[in-house]
Structure formats: structure tokens, C-alpha cells
Amino acid sequence: MKKLIAGILVGLILVGTAACAAAPKSAPVPAPAPSPVPAPMPPESSGLFGGRDTVVVQTPPPVISLPPAPSPTPTPVPAPKAPVEVSQTGQPWEGDRMIIRTGDMSLVVTDVAAAIEQITRLAASYNGFVVSSNTWQERERMMGNISIRVDASSFDDAIRALRGLGVEVRQESTSGQDVTEEYVDLSSRLKNLEAAEAQLLKLMEQAGKVSDILEVQRELVKTRGEIEQTRGRMQYLEQSSSMSFIQVRLEQSKLTVEFSADSRNVKEGARVQFYPNISGGFSPYSFEWAFGDGDTSTDEMPSHAYRSDGTFTVSLKVTDDRGNKDTSTRSDYITVLPGWSAGNIAGGAWNGLVGFGRVIADIIIWLGIFSPVWIIIGFILYFAWWRRRKKA
């Protein structure tokens, strides 16, 4: 009996093994949790036919084929953020930097007054305004100065537009000051001051003595003063960085010519030194002198001797490097007196004698005109003398 049962068990094991070998291979799956196997029941009798025998056979679980698991999708890794700038106080900031830009220019223009009006309109077109402007005259030449503020984003455009207004740009400079770190430090300081102010207000509420209240009040006033100063500085930096400052000096390009001499009354044969006075235009200059007696010169400061007496008209014509011209003429500017000679001395004596005779003649004429007055005065004086003598 025992041999029969052992043979049956071996046969079932062989059949199960053959079935597992014949099954198709699949992707590995996690093994399911083993289910509890009931314990074998004890046999009711030991005989095969004489009694009821119960045999428990363990059959291996069927193999189930599952579809292949999908491959995992890679998760995108976020790009690293740009580093955040940090000020010396440890306060981070982001965004554009705070730059204060300024410009300084010197322009030669045709008309100073018209140029100031054009610059005023230019500032308004760039959302700006005129800070100050003034004009003055220097040696018959107009000069000017104007300061403007324009939107910081239009600073370069404004500089280019100002260049186009001038006949010549004599000087130009621009500069920029980075105040970002200072502004961030001021922001941190303002937060600390405001926190200190809040703490002082709490201390004032808790103070019970008058001396404590006064001490806290003094500190509170000092702290509030520092807060206002910090806010004012921050506001100045904000306005200065948002509105750029440009200063423009203007010089009129119109050529103006004058001249002078070391002496206007000279004797015949004496030399006269002439000096030009030029404003405006573009150097170098060329000179054309006319002395009024037929002689000319192209020197800058000529010296001329007149060979005859009389009065002479002098003129000067100046041409600058760009062809601009101006002429100055002074009528009867030089008077030349005759030199020494016997004829001149005799003529002078005769002229003196004639002059003396004219004076005597003038006196006689005046006496003749007033003769009726003299006669009346003489009659009155005679009548008064006669009456006094008769009384005596």
C-alpha cells in the first residue's frame, strides 16, 4: 500500500514538471505572496479497502503570463537658477543695476538763442525738462549755458541729437556711477531703523517713569531723523538714476571783427600800431588792412607811417578757416598833424595874429552893440554927480 501511494505522488510530480517546462517564457513578475496551505488530515484507517483513507496532494499553482511592464519615463531636471547678487550687507537684489549717467558738452552754434529753444524742445521730447539756462554777451559775441534732464533710457539718443545741433563739437564727455550697492545698503538700513523705531514705541508704552519716557523719546527722535535722511538719500538716487543730467555750453559761431590803434593823433611820419579784436569764427584767420592813404597790409598787427597830414579812414577785413567774413570800418579814425618847417612856423604865427585881430574886432563889435546901454548908464551917473555938486 505504501509503495502504491509513493508511486502516485512521483507520477504527479513528473507531470507538473513537464507542464512547467512546456509553458511560454514571460517577463519576470514579482512572486505572489504564498497562500496558506492546510495541514494534512490524519488518515481515518490504515487499510486501503477496509477503511476510508484520505490523501492530500499539493499541486503547484498555475503560471500566469503578464504583458511586459512599460519602461519608466525620465523626469526632466529643472535648470539651475542664475546666482543672485548680494551686497556687502548680505541683502540680495535682482533686476537692472542703478546707474547715474551724466553728460557735459561744449557746442559752437550759429545762434545761441535759437539753440536754447531747440534744446528745450529736445528735453521735452525725451520726457525731460530744463534745469537752468542763461545767456550773456562776451566781446560782441553771444554765449549760453543750459542744463537739462532726460529719461535715462534716452540718454544716448539725446547726446546724438545735441551733436546735430552744433556747427562744431568742441568738447564732449559722459560718465556713469553705479549706486546699486549703496541703494541696497540704504534699504537694509531703513528696515533696521524702522524696526528700532517700533521697539522704541513699545518701550515708551511700557515705561513708567518720566525719566525713562524722556530717554526713549530722545532715542525715538534721533531714529526718526535717521529714517528721514535715509529715505531722502534713496529718493535722490532713484530720481538721479531715472533722469540723466546733461549740461551744454553754447558759443556763437558768428564772426565779429573790431580793431584799435595805439594812437589816433600822430605827426606826419610817425608810426601807428594797429591791433585786431576777433571773436567767433574758426581759426586760423586771414587779415586785410586798408589804412586810408592807399597802403594795405596782410599782417595780423601791422605798423604803418603816414607820409602826409590829414584824417584817414581805416578798415579791416577778416576771413576765418571756413570762409566766414566780417569787415570793420572806422571813418576819420587817424588824424595826422604836419611836421616842423619854417613855412609852418610862419603860417602858425600869421594864424595867431589873425586870431588876435579877430578877438579885438569881436570886443569892439560887442561894445558897439551895447552902446545905448553905456550912454544911459553914463547919463545917470552924470546927473547924480551934478545934483550932489549943486547941493554943496
Rank of each mutant, 00 (worst) to 15 (best):
G368R: 11
Q217H: 03
D262A: 05
N351P: 00
I365C: 08
P34A: 07
K317E: 14
P24F: 04
G281Q: 06
K325H: 10
P70Y: 07
E85I: 03
N324E: 07
T230I: 08
G232Y: 10
D320W: 02
Q199L: 12
E238V: 07
G368T: 14
R139F: 15
V57I: 12
D151Q: 14
S341I: 01
L353A: 15
I116E: 02
G128P: 03
W386N: 01
L203F: 12
P74S: 12
S240H: 01
V84Q: 09
P40Y: 02
A342K: 02
P302D: 08
P372R: 03
I334N: 01
R141L: 14
S147R: 14
V86F: 03
M105R: 01
L200H: 11
V216T: 12
V221K: 12
G280F: 06
T135I: 08
V112W: 04
L214M: 02
D151A: 04
A195K: 14
R149Q: 13
S297R: 03
I364Q: 13
Y275K: 06
K317G: 12
I360Q: 12
W289L: 02
P67H: 04
P62S: 03
S283I: 13
S147E: 04
A305E: 13
R139C: 12
Y382Q: 04
E172D: 02
S133K: 15
Y236H: 08
A196N: 14
G176M: 10
R218Y: 02
L201I: 09
D332G: 06
V150R: 01
K267H: 07
W340A: 06
L255M: 00
N351R: 07
S188I: 08
F282H: 10
A195E: 10
M142A: 14
W366Q: 11
G51D: 10
Q229T: 13
G90I: 03
A124E: 01
H304P: 06
W340E: 01
S133I: 14
G269W: 11
T174K: 05
E300R: 14
Q88K: 08
R52F: 07
R170M: 14
K317Q: 11
F129S: 07
I116G: 09
W136A: 07
P74L: 13
